[in-house]
Amino acid sequence: MSSLAQVSQVAGDPAVHPTAPAPETEKRSWTAYLLLLPGVLWLGVFFILPLVQLAAVSLQSRFPGFPGYYYRDLNFENYLSALTDYAPHFARSFLYAGLATFLAFVVAYPLAYAMAFKAGRWRNLMMICVVAPFFTSFILRTFAWSQILADEGPVAAVLNFLHLLPGGHIINTPVAVVAGLTYNFLPFMVLPIYASLERADPRVIEAGGDLYANGFTTFRTVTLPMSMPGVLAGTLLTFIPAAGDFVNMELLGPQRGKMVGNVINDQFLAVPGGYPVAAALSFTLMAAILAMVFLYVRRFGTDELV
């Protein structure tokens, strides 16, 4: 995710040295702990502590006869229930998020490539264009998609006219959900890929063209591997929020066949006494995602991530 961070910096700044600094400047001192303390405390109180509490809740049992009341327990049945009753929801979450991630990659790569190698002086403007739509509220944009994909909207009309829409609807189908997920997390895919392509030396790609001649072979053997750190960061940054999302399903998706995010949300906020199972679902989701991230970190090293 360092690549994401670098994007936010003004390009061509003279203070920035692309090469690794030569002298050793790290100091060893108590000052470091003083600097870290407030932030670490904050993360401790508002990230670690809540997770511990969530873990405790996920093992609680309901007080019989008193909906909304629980007692401390080691009730692993919540997890069993999470994994058996809601297995289809997990499957849908990962399937839709995976599809959205793949589609976002397909859409994002040419854009990132054009920004890095073809845009020239339009580069900064293109960057603004990528980020700008995200200054309108996420919910408003998703709602706009529900209008665009509505039965009365242009997309359904055109597809129906061409008889390409077997069910007659896009809205309230999984297709609309995947479309919404793809759209909403696209910049998280574009920016890291752009950052890693921008750091690549275009001469290396030219050399690749010189050696392999064929454009696609050059792309597959030279360009894509060079942008791999960005692609993987982008994949994570798209997949993680997409897998936990419920808003796209709520605004664009069908009434039945929800994602795990919707279940967690409803169990917490709408179902009395739903806390323990919802907490178990949250933990399972987090564990699954962290396992993925862990594999990624093991494969490519932490430096790429933080």
């Binding site: 995710m1 001192s29 870290l36 993680i240 995010g261 962290l290």
Partner: peptide, 30 residues
């Protein structure tokens, strides 16, 4: 700076970014 616990701090900074919002929201609610 170099200090004991730097790797752990790195993880502590990274994990919130890799946690789905819904999990953080749920944890904070509890």
């Amino acid at each position: 700076y170099r200090f004991r616990g730097k790797a752990a701090s790195n993880v502590l900074i990274f994990v919130p970014m890799a946690t789905p919002e819904i999990v953080m929201g749920a944890a904070l609610l509890t």
